[in-house]
């Protein structure tokens, strides 16, 4: 029963990958070795696709693997398998949180968690900076600081930052404008 196996394998991935996004990768490699549903090259491709589509790598990989294994129903079932544990666990935690919100230990744990949370968000930002505002491989090749910084991208970032402070339009508009600017000025270098 391929549908059941797809659901179960991705359910396990969803259950054990904590920290989101790339945390699913080790599980995907393991699943590739075990089931042969997709290859390591497929995973590398999916990382590239996930950078160019909305949606987390785990969600995208489950849809893709499910589809190539068992068609459209397979894609849907695998994705639901990945998402289910996370929805179930949060529903439970939300109940507990509502009941113990004023508990002193819950308060204290949240005090630590908030600082950690914002540290992780900042670190994630550095990762995006590394692939958007600076070019580490080009810098390593030439050793010139001019090659390290992507000046056009940095200028766009500064303009976006101040525009967002001044103009109160929906953030989606800024995303769309950035895509258009990227295409016009060939930000991808192709």
């Amino acid at each position: 029963m391929i549908y059941l196996r797809l659901f179960w394998e991705f359910f396990k991935t969803g259950l054990f990958s904590i920290g989101g996004g790339l945390a699913t990768l080790p599980f995907l490699y393991e699943m590739s070795n075990k089931t042969g549903w997709f290859t390591h090259a497929d995973i590398a491709d999916m990382i590239a696709i996930s950078e160019s589509t909305p949606g987390a790598i785990g969600i995208n990989m489950s849809t893709y693997a499910g589809y190539i294994t068992a068609g459209v129903p397979g894609g849907l079932i695998a994705t639901l398998g990945l998402g289910s544990p996370c929805v179930i666990i949060i529903l439970i935690i939300a109940r507990l949180l509502a009941r113990f919100q004023d508990n002193v230990y819950v308060q204290k744990a949240l005090y630590g968690l908030r600082a950690a949370s914002i540290a992780m968000i900042s670190a994630a930002c550095i990762n995006v900076v590394k692939v958007s505002l600076i070019h580490i491989p080009a810098f390593q090749a030439s050793g010139s600081l001019l090659d390290l910084f992507d000046l056009r991208a940095i200028v766009l970032a500064v303009i976006l930052y101040f525009s967002m402070r001044k103009i109160k339009i929906h953030p989606i508009a800024f995303l769309a404008a950035s895509a258009v600017i990227g295409i016009i000025f060939r930000f991808g270098g192709v």
Binding site: S52, I121, L133, A157, L160, Y161, A177, V190
Partner: peptide, 26 residues
């Protein structure tokens, strides 16, 4: 899909916006 020039250019632009959105969130 990920190799199409228009997609690569668009997402190079979008990533810049994502940096700024995350900075604003922080």
């Amino acid at each position: 899909f990920a190799e199409l020039p228009v997609v690569r250019n668009a997402f190079a632009g979008i990533r810049v916006c994502v940096v700024v959105l995350i900075v604003r969130a922080v």
